[in-house]
Write a protein that binds this DNA or RNA. Sequence first.
RNA 1: GGGCGGCUAGCUCAGUCGGUCAGAGCGCCUGGUUUACACCCAGGAGGUCGGGGGUUCGAGCCCCUCGCCGCCCACCA
Length: 886
Amino acid sequence: MLDRTFDPKTAEPRLYAQWEASGAFSPTDDPAATPFSMVIPPPNVTGALHIGHALNNTLQDVLIRFARMRGRAALWVPGSDHAGIATQMVVERQLAAEGNIGRRDMGRDAFVERVWSWKSASGRLIAEQLRRLGASCDWTRERFTLDDGLSRAVRQVFVKLYKEKLIYRDKRLVNWDPQLQTAISDLEVEQREIDGALWSLAYPLEDGSGEIVVATTRPETMLADTAVAVHPSDGRYAALVGRCVRLPIVGRPIPIIADAYADPEKGSGAVKITPAHDFNDFKVGQRHRLPIINILDAFARLNENAPAPFRGLDRFEARRRVVAQFDSLGLLRGVEPMRHFVPHGDRSGAVLEPYLTDQWWVDAKVLAGPAIAAVEDGRTVFVPRNWEKTYFEWMRNIEPWCISRQLWWGHRIPAWYGPDGLIFVAETAEGAAAAALEHYGRPEPLRQDDDVLDTWFSSALWPFSTLGWPERTADLKRFYPTDTLVTGFDIIFYWVARMMMMGLHLTGVPPFRRVVFNALVRDEGGTKMSKSKGNVLDPLEIVDAYGADALRFTLTAMSGQARDIKLSRQRIEGYRNFGTKLWNAARFCQMNGAISHADFDPGGAAGTVSRWIVGELQRSSATVTAALDACAFDEAAGELYRFVWNVFCDWYLELVKPILAGADAGAKAETRAMAAFVLETVLKLLHPVMPFLTEELWAKTAPVGQTRGCLLISASWPDLPSTWIDAAAAEEIGWLVALVTEVRQTRAELNLPPSARPRLDLIAPPDRVRAFAERHHDLIVSLARLGELGEVGAAPPGSVVLVAGQTTVGLAVAAHLDLAGETARLAREIATHDADIERTQRKLANQGFVAKAPAEVVEENRERLAGAMDAKARLEAARDRLSLLA
RNA sequence: GGGCGGCUAGCUCAGUCGGUCAGAGCGCCUGGUUUACACCCAGGAGGUCGGGGGUUCGAGCCCCUCGCCGCCCACCA
């Protein structure tokens, strides 16, 4: 016999091992099976599983298990991302903590080796955690963005795009992170609002005839100013255009130029131009061929281009000194505190500097075209749809993508430089050497580019590189393009857009047919979970406390939320209880010999309760199937919860108790088989969401002395015919449920003690209802806790009258009847009907409604009115009789 | 500045095509040794659907507008 509860701690590892050993995680070889494939959003190797991963991977696992059970050749490719910056930071921090020498002292090769050894030691953590969650990915196909195959793919793509001039090298301003010592892309810039100040600085005219005032939040950059700009139509300064100011401190004369970039509304209307340290100024500088003076080094200290006293100073110290100098020169025209947004590196948190360097770029504009078209024409569909707008907006305004990073951990850029600086791009050093030999006519020493590629460059190839591209592997042919990508909307630009661009450019087809965006998980207060805030719910801790199924069901049930999920322990506990409920239902079935029979035909059942439940089951399974097909995970979970608890447990199992305890052997046998069938079907339907508990029950509820033919993970998905829905049985059981509920409500209102067994009489019932009552006599008596169930022509004195649907009954409660209370109860009931009658009557009296509303809606309201008036009349009759008693 | 969400019961949220849509779970209250389950059972209270206007026979639902809250993008000399 089953224990009282499921024990996830011991069962989960055992079941997972069984699945993995069975080979169920790999797609079937059956050539007739239609492929269904997904690639995991590769977690960072540095990462530990957080609740966002848990959500994302639960949804993927639901989909892959669903597909597998439907007979698809289901493949879910797992893997992880080398996460350049993040990983390098982790290892550097570790070196520092251990008191080791730093990365630069260590040298590149030793450092990279150190990262690899860290990766092999710690990089398996997240894969283990995914297993604990129950993720059924194909571990035999696990990939890493820096493994040999993927590295080859990266190099080949780089070379191809370079040859197509879609990758190029260019010197321009980038977002420079002075702490990490690398360029980063626009996307990695985070605007943070900080307290700063706006300083007004006076620049004297060269001839001493006056001054021009400019305002800035970064006074130190004035050391690199090469112009002052005013708007061409700004009358205040028209006379000054073309003349020069002498830059204070520096002493350099710089021109006053006219450019529309200057906004007459802002500040003084004149703006300082620093081409080397401001993106907008850079463009102005290009228009006017201004010199570009870079005064910062890679650490954002002032370099040799700054006046001697400033050299070597940190930028913020330089700022203070520049301001002080202006002040002492009498040229500081004002300072006002200002809260403003300043760009920070999202990883380091350092204030970024626009910095002039040579970097590698991808011409994203060209690649974006086909990627936009694929979503426009529906070859790739976003779920929910509204993310398409965000995608289009970004893609249509896309800027060149800076792909080089001054890091050591990552794919080294396959470009080599000759002695004269000429670039040779090739997949290998030998290839580059050969090209150089051809060019120079003799061997020349080549130096490989020191930089590595942005991590997202390799991630962009993930859907096909993991399947073996550029080789034309069997997997690639069978599983590419993939079916569904499940990911967070926070990486729609970083990742989804770039996979679309690369996938289309390199393979000609979009890498997935559907992209499902899952919500963001937050804590109960709605703030993003983060370690620094200490509000992290550790998924593994939850799994330990409640089991993986409880966490999975919770996340699935809450996944419909538009943008974020607020998670609470209470909620998880509730769904753990749901699992226990099902467990105990199975326990009940087992105790009552409800065991499945292969030759049982559920559609041919004779008993009313059987015919009813099998129809409910059909409807429910169709709802769940449709919901999962549409990725409406929350709907699927909600329907399963409702059916299992509110239909199967609350009513069906209660309804069959008398049959199972009764003497009718035929009915008993049929009911046992039906209960087992419903349970078994529920296990299948619930398996994608709660795989562990259902798998355990599947094994434990096998026919006595037998084992199941296969694991539940490999069982086939229920496909029940709609002909199983029996309208007559549904009506009959619906009547019974309404009647029992009505009696229970009345008992509670009258404060009838549970021990009271009143008599219930049908009052002049129609033949059909009489037949229902006769058929379910014992059930009604037990469920409503009655003494007797009979029939009378009119309500006897001392009874209260109830109306359940079309049926009026008298409940004999004389001994407990509180006349005043009962009168009040009836009055309330009547008032409810009155309100309904009035509303419906008003509607039907409205000419417009009758004329314009669809006929069926009008008819529906007529019936509603008739029903309400009928019920009211019967309740009034009861009230009148009651007043006679008084 | 541009865009996207959200505002429905004490809390967290569903609500599809405008017509039993005023719902669920949790919490709360009342009652319960019902032989599967107290991780349970039965019952209950609680909402002017953010405000205002409009369209419609009919509006949480569509349109306009205002107000908060959150996020994304761009930018602020």
